[in-house]
Nucleic acid binder design. Structure first.
Lengths: 157, 157
DNA sequence: TGCTAATGTTTGAGCAGTCAACAATCTACA
DNA sequence: TGTAGATTGTTGACTGCTCAAACATTAGCA
């Protein structure tokens, strides 16, 4: 008992544990709101959002996967759902027969717009309720230094 | 095209999107390290950690669930794995026949200790590589203001 | 004392994602 | 030109979780 695992402390770990907990709590809230009111997953929403910002409202699946940090197969299955719902369609790439574009349909854009009304309000509320503008910027810039992509620890952009 | 979804911007959303991406990236890295070298999930690790800090190295399943933000059934299944591996055992509560304690076994503690060597080093590396001590404290305290529990935004403890 | 409601846990069904294996296509270079 | 290797995407098998329902126990209260 004297040999407690007291090593397991430190600022880094505390920050990380809080990060984990906050993510779980927030994610759970947002997801259940989105699913309940619009039938969309957080990742669904994120995908629609990225597509809406992309030129021609379309992206190759690979690029989409990289942006939302899903594996290729994850993207395939997620898009299958969105296609079934009519929010996204597929278009072949004429310069590369392997690639397939995911295209945000008009209905998908409309869906995104409606979902955004509630979702954005939630996001805004949650954050601006707790932070001043300056703090929010601090938070964003600190978060920005964390890794944002897959396992490439070594290489640097 | 002129009717872009330009509403979908703002400091809050940017912070949140970064938060999401960072979580996905870091989680993926840590999990795969832990699984590869110790056969533990991030949540497994977190559960062992909480048990190691608890009095008698034991916690009721409900309390455990609340700490790692899993549902009761999630805890049941997670603990099933840890029990099978011998890291955790169960003990009945003499004052309440419904409740069951999860107890960290000696082997579990040893496992946690070994896993911590590598895992903590990773956590430390990732964070201290990118932040000064003061920044880390800022980050931790900002994160601390985010919700840390389930859907109860309203009520107060 | 006995009924109702709350609490603690488990179970079955299902979903969203992973990984590993695969097929198809493109690229580069001998 | 042919072929080896990289890139793009899909599929099958699995995992880790959720939700809803069940069950046992306890607590509150008439």
């Amino acid at each position: 008992m004297s040999s407690q695992v007291s090593v397991l402390r430190g600022v880094e770990l505390e920050a990380w544990v809080r990060f984990l907990r906050a993510h779980a709590a927030i994610t759970r809230q947002f997801t259940s709101e989105l699913v309940a009111t619009h039938g969309l997953t957080l990742n669904d929403y994120e995908v629609l959002l990225h597509l809406s910002r992309a030129p021609d409202r379309s992206l190759k699946r690979v690029d989409l996967a990289e942006r939302v940090l899903l594996t290729p197969s994850g993207i395939t299955r997620l898009l299958a759902g969105l296609e079934r719902a009519g929010h996204v369609s597929r278009r072949e790439c004429e310069s590369d027969a392997r690639a397939i574009y995911a295209v945000l349909t008009d209905e998908g854009l409309e869906k995104l717009r409606r979902a955004s009304e509630t979702h954005l309000a939630s996001v805004r509320a949650l954050f601006s309720e707790r932070f001043e503008k300056g703090e929010l910027e601090t938070l964003a810039s600190l978060l920005d230094r964390l890794p944002m992509r897959g396992a490439d620890d070594a290489c640097e952009e």
